[in-house]
């Protein structure tokens, strides 16, 4: 059985149907890209996997490692190993990045009946990972994302991901708002986390991110359904031809 199995998923937002029977299976070790035009349901899929309230699941199932994912609270999903890298990471005034990371790591460890990290262990781990990602120590002392540039915010997401070591990472438009240098830094961070034990779902509108994070499988999402699945060459084809053909097909 696949690590993540989505069957016939139907989701409405404010009474509007966004996902209309989506099927997807992701095995551990695989990197899937989900591409599609604006409004096709990409971000909805990401948020439903992470458990956001405003999205109402009206049909279908999502199982993660054999268990019903939809029955879990967002924090329980995180503790099970699901990580959503946000398209627009939020600013949290008054909570330092360091404190935020410690709260997150220890909450997850507690839920998994693991011992909390001692302050020195924690600080050592954060410093190591931050250094690898080129995250400035000063940034760790500042409130989460407050006054960060777009690139710094995305790097902070990858730092969180590296520390939380999820089994399944969902990257929602991680390339949006990044210049090419920032994009490379972020992609390098993601690539370093690729492992046979970890799966990734990379959601993007543009092919350029996939030059740097090379997927195993590419899906085209249009009007709430996966309409085509192929290898990494599918991304190049989309780049050349655009989404027009798929929008017609789905209609």
């Amino acid at each position: 059985m696949a690590m993540l199995e989505i069957k016939d998923l139907q989701v409405t937002v404010d009474g509007r149907e966004i996902l209309k029977g989506l099927d997807l299976a992701v095995n551990k070790g695989e990197v899937h890209a989900i591409m599609g035009p604006n409004g096709s349901g990409k971000s909805t899929l990401a948020h439903v996997l992470a458990g956001k309230d405003q999205y109402a699941v009206t049909g279908g199932t999502v199982t993660f490692e054999g268990a019903d994912l939809l029955a879990l609270e967002p924090d329980e999903r995180a503790a099970k190993g699901i990580f959503l890298a946000f398209q627009y990471p939020l600013e949290i005034p008054g909570v330092t990045t360091m404190n935020f990371l410690r709260e997150a790591i220890n909450a997850q460890r507690k839920k998994r009946d693991e011992a909390e990290l001692s302050p020195p262990e924690f600080i050592k781990r954060v410093r190591e990972v931050a250094a690898k990602l080129g995250v400035d120590q000063e940034m760790l002392r500042r409130p989460v994302n407050v006054g960060f540039s777009g690139g710094e915010k995305k790097r902070n997401e990858i730092l969180q991901m590296a520390l939380l070591e999820p089994k399944l990472a969902v990257l929602d438009e991680t390339d949006s708002g990044l210049d090419i240098d920032a994009l490379k830094v972020v992609a390098d961070g993601v690539n370093r986390l690729r492992s046979p034990e970890r799966a990734m779902v990379v959601i993007t509108h543009y092919q350029r991110l996939l030059d740097h994070i090379v997927p195993d499988i590419v899906h085209v999402l249009s009007r709430g359904r996966i309409v085509r699945t192929g290898g990494k060459e599918l991304a190049l084809e989309l780049e050349a031809k655009g989404y027009a053909a798929y929008q017609d097909e789905a209609a």
Binding site: D75, I92, G94, A107
Partner: peptide
């Protein structure tokens, strides 16, 4: 939601935001 998506339970997430 951002805090909860990182594994922090709802009550704790609320407390962190109130403290901040």
């Amino acid at each position: 939601f951002y805090l909860r998506a990182r594994g922090i339970p709802a009550k704790r997430a609320e407390a962190l935001l109130i403290q901040a």
